[in-house]
């Protein structure tokens, strides 16, 4: 399972960078979205994908029985998804406002503040 997930994560990174290098700001935001998803998948994969029981400790015992799945990466991903969602919502509003004000979605025409 890990090799497949690693390839999927790699493809997501590649797609994200390709999209971010395009000139349109809409594609830029799509790239950012893919990038955060790729990072989430990377956490999921690199933390090790054990097929195990839920991490519950029976009553009276001090540690769980048998192999359990590590819950921490899932907690991390959940947090990261929520954050990425919030930031992405902001980015979508930003490009909408930017389009209304600048009247273009071409990044090459947004150079006024560069030099």
């Amino acid at each position: 399972m890990e090799p497949i997930m690693a390839i999927v994560a790699g493809c997501l990174y590649a797609a994200a960078i390709y999209m971010m290098l395009r000139r349109s700001i809409v594609k830029l935001v799509i790239g950012l979205m893919l990038l955060s998803n790729a990072a989430n998948l990377l956490i999921f994969t690199s933390a090790g994908m054990t097929r195990g029981a839920p991490p519950l400790i029976p009553v009276g015992a001090m540690q769980p029985e048998g192999i359990i799945a590590d819950p921490l990466p899932q907690a991390l991903i959940l947090t990261a998804i929520v954050i990425a969602f919030g930031v992405l919502a902001f980015a979508v509003v930003l490009i909408h406002r930017a389009y209304n004000i600048i009247h273009t979605d071409n990044l090459d025409q947004m150079k006024d503040t560069d030099t």
Binding site: M20, L32, A98, K111
Partner: peptide
């Protein structure tokens, strides 16, 4: 501000994604 913000937001989100990875 919009032009500046597009660059600011993009680069900072990129950095966050690298940090998270």
């Amino acid at each position: 501000q919009m032009e500046g913000a597009v660059k600011y937001v993009t680069l900072n989100l990129l950095s966050s994604a690298i940090f998270l990875s």
